[in-house]
Design a protein around this nucleic acid. Structure first.
Length: 273
DNA sequence: ACTGGATCCTGACTGC
DNA sequence: TGCAGTCAGGATCCAG
């Protein structure tokens, strides 16, 4: 499910409801996530106070005192919800973070591609975060960065853009959308794109992510924010999921093929190879 | 060093 | 109605 806008939507929903709250207990019903949830995680966070809710790429970082943070990834199908009156756990409700009072932060993830770690210090050096590229909405990300990173690369620009080392948090939906907005063919080798077009691409990435965050993210089937509401950016998607439909810019029918095992949609007129 | 492919897992959907 | 095959928002690992 979630790319950067969906994780950011989750973060914004969680922050005011979790910050300064005390963790009563952590309950792990299913440890077999992307990586096994460490034994002893429960006792390590019990009784601690939540100090912050941050995001890096598609990762959520929940500060639990000192330098310690829970590092949470939602995978393809995960969601986190705050429940003031939690119903009995349903299938795939793998983790509950119980706060003082009846409130529960509940993690549901049918495919179990998500993950949960405890990071003791210096989260940016954690193996899962160390190789990440810049945040796309921060200053370190621009056309110059993309251009430099792409030197000598023959990989399709779409796969290049989805590589977390290039830029953090851009997945299949928003890579598809940004390339359409920037007028760049997704199969074009990354190293054969000039500075000017990379500046356009970086701008398109920022614009589409900001618009998606403003809409509460994209819900294809099962994403919900922390309040259980879907995101509304799906209706603003111009390329993703619109194969065969007319390009909203030039009316040419959009095409679809797989790049790196991921469905890729583009306009053969606006996005020349 | 890069690159493409296989892989983890469940559920929804399609076509026979 | 049932069953097999395909696909899905991610990201690591491995062989070539």
């Amino acid at each position: 499910m979630p790319e950067l806008p969906e994780v950011e939507t989750t973060r914004r929903g969680l922050a005011p409801r979790l910050t300064d709250r005390r963790i009563e207990t952590l309950v792990v019903r299913e440890r077999r996530l992307r990586w096994p949830v460490a034994e002893g995680l429960e006792t390590a966070v019990a009784g601690r106070r939540i100090t912050s809710v941050e995001r890096r790429g598609k990762y959520l970082l929940i500060g639990v005192g000192g330098e310690r943070r829970l590092l949470w990834h939602l995978g393809m199908s995960g969601s986190l919800r705050v429940l003031a009156q939690p119903p009995p756990p349903q299938p795939h409700d793998h983790v509950d973070l119980r706060l003082a009072g009846p409130t529960v932060l509940r993690f549901n993830d049918p495919r179990r591609f998500g993950s949960l770690h405890l990071v003791d210090a210096a989260p940016e050096q954690h193996p899962l975060l160390a190789g990440l590229g810049p945040e796309p909405l921060d200053r370190g990300f621009d056309g110059e960065w993309l251009y430099g990173r792409a030197r000598g690369r023959r990989i399709a620009v779409k796969a290049f853009l989805m590589d977390g080392a290039t830029v953090a948090g851009v997945g299949n939906i928003y890579a598809t959308e940004a390339l359409h907005r920037a007028g760049i063919h997704p199969s074009r080798p990354a190293g054969r794109i000039g500075r000017g077009r990379y500046h356009r691409l970086a701008q398109a990435v920022r614009e589409v992510l900001e618009a998606a965050i403003a809409a509460g993210g994209t819900t294809l089937r099962d994403f919900t924010g922390s309040e259980g509401r879907p995101g509304y950016f799906r209706q603003d998607l111009r390329a993703y999921g619109r194969a065969g439909k007319p390009c909203l810019h030039c009316a040419e029918p959009l095409r679809e093929r797989r790049i790196g095992q991921r469905a890729t949609v583009w306009c053969p007129r606006c996005q020349r190879l």
